[in-house]
C-alpha cells in the first residue's frame, strides 16, 4: 500500500487570519482508500484544513494538493471530492428532495438508488424545506449526500450534530458497509472519538494549528498506559518516561505514560504495587491536547 501515490499531500501549510494563526506549518500525506480521523479541540484548525483541501480557502504559506493538483477552482479535482460541512446553507424554499435531485450535477459517482435507500433508513422527510428540518434531520441530509455521492475523497466535518445514537450507528454501519464495497478516501472530523475510533485506520490530531499526531490508529491504541499507586512509587516508576498527565488524590497518584510498556516494566510495576490500566483512545487524545496552554477558541473568531 505504501507504494501508492498519496491522494492528499499537504506541505508546510499555514493559514493566518489577521493576527490569528489557524494552521501552522502542517505537513502530511494520505494514501488513497483509507478512513482517516481528523481530531482536535474546537479551534484546533480542523475546519480550516478541510476548507483548504476543498479549495474554499487559500494558504498563507505552503500548499495543499489533492490528486497531485491544487484544488482551488479546479473542477477536475473538485468533482472527485465531497465536503459535508455542518454549516452548509441552502436557499430559501429549497426542500430536501431538491438537494438530492441536484446532487448528480456535483458528484460524478452519485448513486440515486442508494440515496433513496438512505432516506428511508434515516427517515428523512423529503418535501420539507431544508431550513425547517431539525438539526438532526439536516445532519442526516448531509450524511446521505456524503455517502451516496461516493466521491473518491469524501470529507465529513462533524457530520452528525443533533443525530441521535441510533442514527449515528446507522451512519457508522452504512459507512463501513459501503466503504468495504467501494473503497474511497474518507476524512472524518469528529469529537465523538470513542464512537469512531474502531472505524479509523489512520489518525491526524491538530492542536492549536499544529499537527500533533499523524499515525496509524493501531499504533496509537495501547501506546499509553495509566499507572496508579502510592505517589512516591508512581513517580519513581515514571522517572525518565514521558508523562502526559498526572492526577493526585491524597497520597495516591495516577500518571499517563506515553510509550508501550515492556513485560519487564510490568513486572517492575507489579513489584512496586502499581496498577497498570490501558488508556482509551479518547482519553489519550484528551491528555495529548490538554498539555498546552488554552487559548480563546479560534472558531468563534473566524466563523460567524
Amino acid at each position: 500500500m505504501n507504494t501508492q501515490t498519496p491522494v492528499i499531500q499537504v506541505d508546510g501549510l499555514s493559514r493566518t487570519y489577521r493576527d490569528v494563526a489557524a494552521l501552522k506549518d502542517v505537513s502530511f500525506t494520505l494514501e488513497p482508500n483509507i478512513i482517516c480521523g481528523l481530531l482536535g479541540r474546537n479551534g484546533a484548525g480542523k475546519t480550516t484544513l478541510m476548507r483548504m483541501l476543498t479549495g474554499q480557502d487559500f494558504p498563507s504559506a505552503g500548499s495543499a494538493r489533492v490528486f497531485g493538483q491544487d484544488p482551488v477552482e479546479n473542477s477536475a479535482v473538485l468533482q472527485q471530492m465531497c465536503f459535508i460541512s455542518e454549516s452548509t446553507r441552502y436557499p430559501e424554499g429549497f426542500q430536501a428532495r431538491h438537494v438530492l435531485t441536484g446532487a448528480p450535477w456535483f458528484y460524478a459517482n452519485w448513486d440515486a438508488a442508494f440515496a433513496d435507500e438512505l432516506v428511508g433508513k434515516f427517515r428523512l422527510p423529503l418535501k420539507r424545506e431544508v431550513r425547517k428540518l431539525s438539526r438532526g434531520q439536516q445532519s442526516a441530509l448531509g450524511v446521505i449526500v456524503g455517502l451516496a455521492g461516493r466521491a473518491p475523497v469524501t470529507i465529513f466535518d462533524e457530520p452528525y450534530l443533533g443525530l441521535d445514537a441510533v442514527a449515528r450507528h446507522t451512519f457508522y454501519d452504512t459507512l463501513l458497509a459501503d466503504y468495504a464495497e467501494q473503497p474511497r478516501t474518507i476524512l472524518l472530523s469528529t469529537h465523538l472519538i470513542d464512537e469512531v475510533s474502531n472505524l479509523l485506520e489512520h489518525v491526524l490530531v491538530l492542536d492549536e494549528g499544529r499537527l500533533l499526531l499523524d499515525q496509524s490508529a493501531d499504533s496509537l491504541r495501547g501506546s499509553a498506559s495509566a499507572v496508579a499507586g502510592r505517589a512516591g512509587d508512581v513517580d519513581s516508576f515514571a522517572e525518565g518516561r514521558q508523562v502526559l498527565h498526572r492526577d493526585t488524590l491524597g497520597g495516591l497518584a495516577t500518571v499517563t505514560i506515553s510509550g508501550r510498556l515492556t513485560s519487564a516494566d510490568r513486572v517492575a510495576a507489579a513489584a512496586a504495587n502499581l496498577e497498570i490500566a490501558p488508556v482509551s483512545f479518547q482519553q489519550l487524545i484528551v491528555d495529548l491536547t490538554t498539555q498546552s496552554t488554552p487559548q480563546p477558541s479560534l472558531a468563534s473568531v473566524v466563523y460567524e
Binding site: A177, A180, P183, N198, L199
Partner: peptide, 14 residues
C-alpha cells in the same frame, strides 16, 4: 474480512 469488519464495527483494513 468485510463480514468481520461489519460484525465488529471495525475498519476493514484492520
Amino acid at each position: 474480512t468485510n463480514e468481520f469488519a461489519m460484525f465488529y464495527r471495525i475498519n476493514p483494513a484492520t
